[in-house]
Design a protein around this nucleic acid. Structure first.
Lengths: 279, 279
DNA sequence: GCATAGTATGTGGTCAGACCACATAGATCA
DNA sequence: TGATCTATGTGGTCTGACCACATACTATGC
């Protein structure tokens, strides 16, 4: 199970081992790709494949150039990787949108309940600020929804659970496009904004008074309400998920906007490469 | 935001676009790496970096050789990617074990409560079979814990929520080593096995009679009990997570068992490459 | 004619070497 | 002293070349 005989796995597992042992920790910089390749006895391209995985998973940040900022540095930003993973799984219909929404309900109601039980110590400042910012009347739907998403993530952060925070960021991110598309199905955006803001206030209020059940109920209604109102979760949901609010089922989308990948490319016109920046 | 100027991103986003449009779906096969590279105007190595990411994320499965099984095929197996992500984040201390446990509590109590509310229709056969299998007296701790993990995942699967199922598989997988290490701290393994089995039975029974609150409570005690008993979550938990059961804090582990990656490799002995299978 | 062995083809997996763009550090020059 | 200019080293990318593997085709023997 160690090497799996694939070179890039060797690199990945070496780095994981060093992370577990403490020899590598956030803030540290990895050796250069060439040095790493020589050290592990693999090719540089294999090292790069492993680094690419680590980058997407939110474990490494790379910078070009030279100096203290250059190179690959260990970080621990799971939200990005979680978002990427969920977004692609949604795209591949591995994650139906309905399942995403149900999971949001589970996580977010738990978060607000927990915050309510620790009402005095929970740092709600950021959530409050975001709520205030949402009061601006000049916001476009996209801007408002971005603040909305940040508000929900801020609540998770207040609960000081990195796992749930990352999950919520990923969940929200994965269906961002669908949420935005749902705006078009709202009967009246302006009134919806007012309602959403009021619901957010109500959630914060319930947390502040320490009423866990009330916070839980309000968060549930808040999330379920929006998806019901926008009739979201109709696309990509052709599975047997017992439904949240009786989701409708619609046919799929139209084909691609650009020529999709041919499974058997007819010929081999190398096209004009997109401005190759090298010799 | 489209191309990000990095070649492998172009590949990733092209595939994601085709997934969203339906031009690509699970079961389909991607064009060959060389064809894909020519088609997108990037190098083959960039295509490979993108494919590597997709593979780790559980979106493609690659096979060498020729014929209908060869090449890269679209799949949708999020559990693998979730496990990889969480395992590495735990290793990098981005995910403290305590946060993992708290998240398990949230997800699993929600799952059993939901199952209890749909007691008649919930397919508990697999969970029951695993529970029966756990009765075998000849099981090693590792075997027993593997069945235990499968039992919990089976409950999530019964809830028909792919997202939670993947999350739970990832959570459990990420701390597998810690759970196993906890066995050594148990006063009496045999009696613990009996207790765990009894708790599992109790959870299933509560689900079957449709008592959501009871199922929730029993699951909570089951999970929290094991971690309290094994005094797990002591390592890698040096953050400010408000605790679940008053976790102790210990110093870190010892250094690496193998020579860790040097941040500045002193020289450049290319070592003997591990049996390079090429010219 | 038919079964078998041998070969051609195409796949992912890997490596090596070469550039580029970028960013710093040090040397050079006004 | 100050600004500029030149190594030097980084990740990012491309190209071309092999290998191991698995199939599909073809020639060969009966």
């Amino acid at each position: 199970m160690t090497a799996d005989q694939r070179a890039w796995r060797i690199v990945l597992e070496t780095i994981e081992r060093d992370l577990l042992s403490g020899a590598l920790k956030p803030g540290d910089r990895l050796p250069g790709e060439r040095a790493l390749a020589a050290e592990l006895g693999v090719g540089r391209s294999s090292v790069r494949e492993a680094l690419r995985v680590l980058e997407v998973l939110g474990l490494v940040r790379t910078n070009t150039g030279s100096g203290p900022l250059a190179g690959a540095m260990i970080v621990a930003t799971p939200a990005g990787g979680m978002s990427q993973l969920m977004r692609l799984q949604v795209a591949a219909t591995g994650f139906p949108v309905a399942a995403i929404v149900r999971t949001r309900l589970v996580l977010e109601t738990a978060v607000v309940a927990e915050l309510a039980l620790a009402a005095k110590s929970a740092p709600l400042d950021e959530a409050q600020q975001l709520l205030d910012a949402m009061g601006s009347p000049a916001l476009t739907p996209a801007e408002f929804l971005a603040l909305d998403a940040a508000f929900h993530v801020a609540l998770a952060e207040a609960s000081a659970n990195q796992v749930i925070t990352a999950m919520m960021a990923g969940l929200r991110n994965s269906i961002e496009g669908y949420v935005l598309a749902g705006v078009a199905r709202l009967p009246d955006w302006a009134s919806s904004v007012d309602r959403l803001r009021a619901e957010h206030s109500g959630i914060l209020a319930a947390i502040r008074v320490g009423d866990a059940d009330l916070a839980r109920t309000r968060m549930h209604d808040h999330i379920a309400g929006y998806y019901a109102e926008t009739k979201l979760t109709d696309d990509h949901v052709d599975r047997d998920d017992d439904d949240l609010t009786a989701f409708a089922r619609h046919p799929r989308r139209m084909p691609a906007q650009k020529t999709p990948l041919q499974q058997t490319p007819p010929q081999k016109t190398p096209d004009q490469k997109r401005e190759p920046h090298h010799g």
